[in-house]
Design a protein around this nucleic acid. Structure first.
Lengths: 143, 143
DNA sequence: CATGCTCATTAGCTAGGCTAAGTATCGTGA
DNA sequence: TCACGATACTTAGCCTAGCTAATGAGCATG
């Protein structure tokens, strides 16, 4: 059964749900672990293999100076390396280091633990709903 | 058709979708408008009628000092009023002022405009998926 | 009525986001 | 070829949002 949802009331509900959900997930972070934003950037980098700061900023939907900061933190910890672009002296290539990949994998597991436990308690149908919602949200975010 | 979604892979996908979506919605904020957090707090206050700071912090899933700050901003703008608790001198009652309600309504509309337009372009089924996902996310956030 | 708990706030910190401005490099048209 | 506009990244400076720890005020109870 498909209830009628106006775009306006849905917008309000969705915003509320997402801000609270984000905060809840943020709270589940172990101390010393990568932050939400850092982990997201590192994930995007690994999925893509290597990206320029501009490209990474676009993927992550932030402005370039913001990405400079986030990458700076990751670089301090030796998780990401900057290498010069082979032909264009202005650009920089970002890639995860070996340590970055290793730390990523373990932190990712720990980071997801709480969430995975919660999701595991849902029905398969509910998980499916969330998976489809995630796809839709990605699409809307790209607009 | 219901594809199989493991809790782990879903956790990763969901987190990525939500962080990007949040950032995108945040970017759509007109200058001088209420922030994401301020609007969310004001919404919760209006829905509940009146709350103590502690209650509001719980609803919004933040720590009390964080809520003190957010409420402080709203109070500066005359949108929320603090009144003493009738019997317990420690507590405070927070409620939206008349101006708060008026400003809320217009800002809410403006704030949702971008999002509502995006949602309006989705199919009814997709909106339904998002509505059900919002309900699930609320539930998980409460856990 | 003293002591311990709860509520709210203050203080101080970090991260994350933005815009504006600066710097280096590229590419192109005269 | 070289001056100039465009592009890529960073720096500087600002604000919000979040946290923990500590403070102060009021309640409640032995």
């Amino acid at each position: 059964m498909t209830t009628e949802h106006t775009a306006e009331s849905l917008a309000k509900t969705l915003r509320g749900a997402i801000i609270r959900f984000s905060r809840r997930v943020r709270q589940a972070r172990p101390v010393g672990d990568l932050t939400f934003s850092q982990l997201s950037a590192l994930t995007s980098l690994q999925l893509a293999g290597a990206l320029t700061p501009r490209e990474l900023a676009d993927v992550e939907r932030v402005q370039p100076p913001t990405m400079t900061k986030i990458v700076g933190k990751l670089e301090e910890r030796g998780l990401v390396a900057r290498t010069p672009h082979p032909t264009d002296g202005r650009q920089v290539i970002l890639a995860a280091t070996d340590e970055g990949r290793a730390v990523y994998a373990s932190h990712e597991r720990a980071r997801n633990e709480w969430l995975a436990v919660q999701l595991d308690q849902l029905s398969p149908e509910e998980r499916d709903t969330l998976a489809r919602a995630a796809e839709i949200l990605q699409r809307v975010a790209r607009a």
